[in-house]
Computed example of a mutant assay.
Amino acid sequence: MKRQDFYYDLPEELIAQDPLEDRSSSRLLVLDKETGATSHHIFKEITGYLKEGDCLVINDTKVIPARLIGAKEGTGAKIEILLLKRKENNIWETLVKPGKKAKVGTRIVFGEGILVGEVVGIVEEGNRLVKFEYEGIFEEILDQLGQMPLPPYITHQLEDKNRYQTVYAKHTGSAAAPTAGLHFTPELLKEIEEKGIDIARVTLHVGLGTFRPVKVDEITDHHMHSEFYQVDEEAAEKINRAKDSGHRVICVGTTSCRTIESAADETGHLKPTSGWTEIFIYPGYKFKILDGLITNFHLPESTLIMLVSALAGREHVLAAYEEAVREKYRFFSFGDAMLII
């Protein structure tokens, strides 16, 4: 299967640059995964497609303001750091720009010395290991100095950091938001629960590999980045109960999907677990748990559009995307949503 099999043409003006004021007022394209039939709605109407006994799986990871702008000690040259993964207490794997200015031993000053980082190693793909020195609590300093690590296709400044955060974000650790969840409001979640739908919270800390393009022609040659996930006992019980009683498990976002599919055993059941996943889902994959998916519109030739195609079929997905382009839907992180059932 070739990368170009997942290409579609997207006019640049359809890339959403800002979130809507009302999260749940985004548009919603509903796609029947069996027939390819589509219909058009407003996101808050999603409750009409959820049934009593269904289980909705959400990813409660919280994005850290991982983008830091500093100055090289001695020369004052501007250096930008993106925190990717905490390796140990004060050492992080990072993406540094420009990399050539960040040799081992380089020291970078942030916020007039409130935070200082030293490059202590270089790992795969040129990422730098940076050891931080500070007084106080790292998360508080990060909140003060850091910016949200918005995807490269969003060029507008984000006025409110919380708009790149789901309303149910809890466990800190993501370098990117699980964006399908950005459409939910507390009121909508309450309405869903009152309808008799279980909400299971899992955690997957989203890495920047989410935005990494597939560069190889043959998609099976693509190497997925690893991301940390966790499924607790309560979430496992809710998901198992839905499956055992013949109800559907519907994931909010590809990250929730990748979490439960990574954690599932061969019988399609979950146990409380945590670990690192590099699961790559593309057409031909047999889902163990997932029945339906709420997701945003993804980049052409990305691993995410491949995952969606595994669920609904490549032809159905590309036809739905072409329809969304014709109907002028808003695309990517701050854009509109799709429900596949």
Rank of each mutant, 00 (worst) to 15 (best):
Y7S: 15
Y8P: 08
Y8R: 09
Y8Q: 05
E21I: 13
R23T: 06
R23H: 10
S24C: 11
S25K: 14
T35D: 10
G36R: 08
F43S: 03
F43H: 07
T47P: 02
K51H: 14
N59S: 11
D60N: 15
D60R: 15
T61C: 03
K62C: 10
A66E: 07
L68V: 08
G76N: 11
K78Q: 12
I79A: 01
I79C: 01
E80A: 09
L83C: 05
L95W: 02
A102Q: 00
K103V: 06
G105C: 06
V109P: 00
E125P: 02
E125Y: 14
L129N: 05
K131F: 12
E139M: 09
E139F: 09
E140C: 08
I141T: 12
L142M: 13
Q147G: 12
M148D: 00
P151G: 02
P152F: 02
Y153K: 03
L158F: 06
Y168E: 04
A180P: 06
L188R: 09
I192C: 01
I197H: 02
I197M: 07
D198L: 01
A200N: 03
T203L: 06
V206M: 07
G209D: 10
T210Q: 03
F211N: 02
P213I: 04
E218I: 10
I219R: 13
F228R: 12
F228G: 01
Q230E: 14
A235Y: 01
R241F: 07
K243M: 03
G246D: 08
R248W: 00
C251Y: 09
T254E: 06
S256E: 13
D265R: 13
G268Y: 04
K271Q: 15
K271V: 03
Y282Q: 05
P283I: 14
K286V: 10
K286G: 09
F287H: 14
L293P: 00
P300Q: 12
T303S: 15
L304K: 00
I305H: 10
M306A: 08
V308H: 02
V308F: 07
L311W: 03
G313K: 10
R314Y: 10
Y321N: 02
E322R: 15
R326W: 05
F331Q: 03
F332D: 00
D336H: 09
D336V: 11
I341P: 11
